[in-house]
Design a protein around this nucleic acid. Structure first.
Lengths: 365, 365
DNA sequence: AGTGTGCCCGTAAACGTTTCCAATCCGTGC
DNA sequence: GCACGGATTGGAAACGTTTACGGGCACACT
């Protein structure tokens, strides 16, 4: 039924060992025999059995990707970056998602054990201490936004603190004295860092911190909507809102519109992540730009570095990289002059990007 | 180094056959020995080698997913549905994307051969005749929106024709005499069907068809932007636009805003897909609702049906299912009275959905 | 006591590769 | 003519499971 390496060997008049060497170019094979073997393989439509291959070679050619969710622009773009880089290196992607609880993550990780050569894990909701023992020790792992103090794993971290600080500092530079923050989920690492950045910016500007200005949220648009409503009820009313991610900013924008509040005239607004829709909300959203796709690609790159034969078991310094989050000024913060100018240089790779119209948007504005 | 079934057998004082039977519950094992074996396995932290297992059992526990892209709300939601259903059935997902050209698809398919137990393929850009020979014959395949006339594969198809027809008919019911369409890519099956629906609606309403009203596009927001610009240059100017997908509608909306054209007063607009952002554009977008997540879940369901042991090689009638695309009226089409009402019953599963705020939106409007 | 019947369990043969090691071939230098 | 060495090739042992087959054993029945 299925054609094996033996069939190829028989047809080409050689042994299976030679077939293996010829097809993988893993040993010396005379040019002429190699051609004969390749021809036989093609004629028989031979495709090596990957199970057998990885049984003996202990490599599967797959990378595992564990994310809290697949939905939304952020993850969508992230996985796109991961996929592109993996494909370029000949790896397949084993994707698993919808995991927040530690137990789910553990189950997913167990399911992947032995099936993947490396792992990209993003688990902002679980603490380092509880995540660590679940991670496999026999394959390289890259942690996204879960910095481990002990440096036992590769980590790749967005500069949540710095980005948030910069965004809030920008809002404050407009003279706002009461800037509210729509916080991310409790115990979420990204959320905590962004909150820290918010507080730092306030402190640096000498603007007093007020507990009531820190509104709870959970990164969903819905919570952003409710958060903005809460802000509007406050007395005196804040004049600016920093949403800890763009999705909440969208929700807030929606609430402000429903309440008849003009943005940015009556309320300035800023977000975080710079997902592509930020360019075509009304008004376009000031936010912290994160090179999401590059983030995914870089994660795979780090994995690939650890996977070069020889770097395997040898303990080496675990890279800890940080990717910047930089302010991008659009109209929602009320910057005069932001309309005509180009807030940041446009990454050439973004131009003509599928499904995105932001270059057009920014030019047109 | 790695612990095998032999280690477990030795520790439990039984043979490997018994260990296998006990752990898989695949044969009679005395209760007491089973407990001993399970304990040994747990103590040793034994995890079966999946390569060896699938080498002998000829099953990998993985489903392949081949999509043209991973970006954008549509695919994001689709893969979410696929992932949920696969996870529920104990399958892992091997994901591959960014394939439009036939050669890329063929390469991706070859790479997956033997690694997956089943395949979900969405390839709107390649014709049935060229796609068919690339598909594996030894594992079940579900085709998304690629209906094959010969019924050689399971197919799951969105009613593009019917949905487009309904949307355009609705626009026409407002009395519009010149309705432009922003078309999808050439040779894209979905795009062609939606165009067909547009033409049918015109014919049924007795509104004359005009070639110049069919504007080329490619499903990206950018092409929607340009398409709307083109529409605005026409003389006499059309009074309604049907964008063949929501992304293009968003682009069009953006162009209309930049041109100072009020929607829906000066130009009615409708889209297709009902991705979640349609609820919080300004104005909210009238579109054709497709249960995207359910679409993905159903695809996995069909695969699972074909994968129950026994249904394997036996040739059976290949199911050909169609999922409806139904009109959902929001404000962009200019319906009076659409503001207060609830256009369609809200699917309970959508409530409180992560990253979506549309229930709030629709209630609040 | 002999025999049939079920339940448990062990032996060993697959599954399809890769790779170590030895054998063969062939030209070269002495 | 012969030893030698490098380039090719083949044989066979892994890799870690699942599973067909058959053996042992306890028990009930004749």
């Amino acid at each position: 039924m299925t054609v094996t390496i033996w069939d190829v060997a028989r047809r080409a008049g050689v042994s299976v060992a030679t077939v293996s060497r010829a097809l993988n170019r893993s040993g010396p094979v005379r040019e002429e025999t190699r051609r004969r073997i390749e021809e036989a393989a093609r004629e028989l439509n031979y495709v090596p059995n990957s199970a057998a291959r990885s049984l003996i070679s202990r490599r599967t050619g797959m990378l595992g990707v564990l994310l809290p969710d697949l939905f939304g622009e952020f993850f969508s773009e992230l996985i796109r970056g991961i996929d592109g880089a993996a494909q370029g290196r000949g790896y397949h992607l084993l994707v698993s998602s919808s995991h927040d609880a530690a137990s789910e993550i553990e189950a997913a990780l167990r399911g992947m054990r032995g099936r993947v050569d490396g792992l990209v894990v993003m688990a902002p909701m679980v603490e380092a201490a509880v995540l660590k023992p679940m991670l496999p020790r026999n394959v390289p792992v890259v942690l996204l936004n879960s910095p481990f103090a002990d440096g036992a794993f590769d980590t790749l971290t967005v500069d949540n603190y710095g980005g948030a600080r910069e965004v809030v500092a920008h809002l404050l530079s407009h003279g706002h004295q009461r800037v509210a923050i729509l916080k991310g989920p409790e115990r979420n690492h990204d959320a905590e860092e962004r909150l820290r950045g918010y507080r730092a910016a306030l402190a640096e500007a000498g603007v007093p911190w007020r507990e009531e200005l820190e509104i709870p949220g959970d990164f969903t648009g819905e919570s952003g909507y409710r958060g903005a409503e809460a802000v509007l009820r406050m007395e005196p009313r804040p004049t600016a809102i920093f949403a800890a991610n763009d999705a909440m900013a969208f929700g807030a924008l929606s609430a402000l519109r429903d309440a008849g509040i003009a943005v940015p005239e009556e309320m300035a607004l800023a977000g975080f992540d710079d997902v592509s829709s930020t360019r075509y909300t009304i008004p376009p959203l000031t936010t912290a730009h994160v090179a999401i796709r590059e983030l995914g690609a870089r994660a795979v790159g780090m994995l690939a570095d650890a996977l070069v034969p020889g770097a395997g078991a040898r303990p080496r310094p675990r890279p800890r990289e940080t990717v910047p989050a930089t302010l991008v000024v659009r109209r929602s913060c009320g910057c005069t002059g932001a309309e005509g100018g180009r807030p940041r240089p446009i990454d050439p790779s973004e131009r003509g990007e599928r499904g995105s119209i932001h270059t057009l948007q920014e030019d047109a504005v």
